[in-house]
Amino acid sequence: MLKEIRPAIILTIALSIITGLAYPLAMTGIAGTFFPSQAGGSLIEKDGKVIGSALIGQEFTGDQYFHGRPSATSAPDPSDSTKTVSAPYNAANSSGSNLGPTSKALNDRIKEDVEKLKAENPSAPIPLDLVTASGSGLDPHISPEAALFQVPRVAKARKMSEDSVRKLVTDRIEGRQAGIFGEPRVNVLALNMALDQASAN
């Protein structure tokens, strides 16, 4: 049995080099050569500055922007490193709320959001995804219903017609992939960039 020690050590080292260095580094090289944008995190630049990633949601609070879903991400408390504070869409610390179906805290949070949204747009039913936190806290999408729900608020804040804002939304609805996979959705950042562009014109 002692003679099995040599393969245990040498094979571990050799396979580590193959699977832990050669494989990921070669993949990094190939990815960067053939798909530089995706490999780099699908970053979006405007005037030479990175404004975000097409895949990562960001926080919008102003009335003039479409809002994403609630985000439960947090960050270390600057005044006490053992605690955390709420920091929505913190793309350096992804997480969901992890609150369960009988959680009072969850119920209170949803209730508060529902009431806010009802006041904002009493004419439409509240879209489920606008009051539930995503799993990653970085969900870049909302449902088409959730985007259309916000049209009156955004149009009013931007002094644009509801129809023109609605058209921006419907132009950006992405259907199921290959007609089968996933759900219809709207990328919030892409929509808001289009909105800024439309306002500028």
């Binding site: 990921p24 993949m27 990094t28 990815a31 960067g32 053939f34 798909f35 995706q38 490999a39 780099g40 995190g41 699908s42 970053l43 500055k49 990175v50 404004i51 975000g52 990633s53 895949l55 990562i56 960001q58 926080e59 919008f60 609070t61 102003g62 922007y65 869409y89 913190n90 793309a91 350096a92 950042l189 808001n192 960039m193 800024d196």
Partner: peptide
């Protein structure tokens, strides 16, 4: 990667969001 999963050795990216906030990716 083709479908969008990153593969790089870069430092975390600092982005300035549309609303002007800082987002570390």
């Amino acid at each position: 990667v083709w479908l969008g999963v990153p593969q790089n050795l870069s430092a975390y990216t600092e982005a300035t969001t549309l609303e002007g906030a800082k987002q570390i990716i």
